[in-house]
């Protein structure tokens, strides 16, 4: 049992216990934390997907149709399903943290966290419904 003793640079008397790279696997809360941070990978994926879609639409009808066909293939659908779950996790954790990241004050009193989160969830629902209505309702009636 000989873990190499390492000291902090310029502070030779400070000794820090080495921590394993897998420290976050030791507790449920740590795993949830890392998973929450990793939702950002899927956020970036959707940004890239949107960029690809915009480029395909601007290129030609054929390019757009080809991309749509590729998106319908089972492996891609599987990946997007994981992405969708990650995005929902991101939204829920983001709205739950919102009152703590940015406390809202009204007449000198702090608005209860539940109301701030609740307002965010309501706005999320409204925006999602509006987008769905826009694309499913009006656009398809030609």
């Amino acid at each position: 049992m000989s873990t190499p003793v390492r000291y902090t640079l310029h502070h030779p008397r400070w000794y820090r216990r080495p921590v394993s790279v897998f420290w976050w696997l030791k507790k449920r809360a740590y795993i949830v934390f890392v998973l929450r941070e990793l939702t950002s990978v899927f956020v970036a994926l959707v940004s890239v997907l949107t960029l690809l879609q915009v480029r395909a639409i601007l290129e030609s009808p054929e390019a757009h149709a080809a991309l749509m066909a590729r998106l319908a293939s089972p492996p891609v659908t599987g990946l997007l399903l994981v992405a969708l779950a990650a995005l929902v996790f991101h939204s829920v954790s983001w709205f739950n943290l919102a009152p703590r990241a940015m406390p809202v004050r009204l007449r000198g009193r702090r608005v209860p966290d539940v109301l701030v989160s609740g307002g965010n969830f309501a706005a999320w629902l409204f925006l999602s419904a509006a987008m769905a209505f826009l694309f499913l309702g009006t656009m398809t009636t030609r």
Binding site: V43, L49, M68, S91, L127, M131, A132, M139, T140
Partner: peptide
Amino acid sequence: LAAFLFPIHLLLFGFVFPLGWAEPPSY
């Protein structure tokens, strides 16, 4: 922005339209 708009966007443009669950907007 991602929290509010990404889930519905992915649902529509990653599932509903490519998989033909609903009539997609025309090109």
